[in-house]
Amino acid sequence: MTVAAESQSASELDPGLEGALDHFARLGLERGWRIDRDALEDNYLARSRSDHPDRHAGADARTRRVALERSAANNEAYRVLRDPVRRAEYLVKLGGIDLDSSDPQTGAPHPEQSFLIEMIERRDRLEELTTGGEDALAELRDEVDEELDAVFATAVDALDGGDTQAAAAALVQRRYLQRFLDEIDAAIDSPNQP
C-alpha cells in the first residue's frame, strides 16, 4: 500500500502522473471489489486534507491548479469506490469494458434475446398488476429486488475470479433489472396511474 499524502509538504505537490492513477491507486487500495472500508475512509480523509486547495492558497498558480485537480480526483475516486455497484462497474471498466458505452467491442455487452423478451413480458404483467392492488406490486418488488441481489452476487463472484466478461454480462442484467425496479417503485408510489 502506498500512502504518499502525509509525506508531502503543503506547497510542493508533484503534478507527476496525475492522469495515470486509477481510483484504487489514488486512494492507496489494492485493486479489487473487496476493499478495506476503513482504509478507504482513512486514506480519502488524509488525501483530502493534504490536497485541499485552502492548504495551497499561498502557493504558485501551478500548484494551486494541481491541488484543485487532485481534490476533484480524490472526490471522484471516493464516490466510485464507496459504492459497491459503482466499484464493480469501475473494475469492469478497468478490465476494458465500459458499461456506459454502446461500442460493439468495448461497450456494454448485449444480454440474451430471451432476457429482453422476459423484460418486456414482465412489463406487460406489471401493467396488469397496477390494477390488481398493492400486495401484488409489493410481492413483485421483492421478487425483482432478490433477482437484483442475485445477479450482483454473480458479478462479484466473476470479479473475484478475474472474469471481466462474465462480470460485465451480470452487471448489464443488473442495470435492466434496476430500471424495472424503478418502474415498479413508481407504480407503487402512484397507484392510480393507468
Partner: peptide, 13 residues
C-alpha cells in the same frame, strides 16, 4: 423486434 440498450436498461418492442 425486441432490443435493449444495456447502458441504461431501456427496452423497446
Amino acid at each position: 423486434g425486441i432490443v435493449g440498450a444495456p447502458a441504461c436498461g431501456d427496452v423497446m418492442k
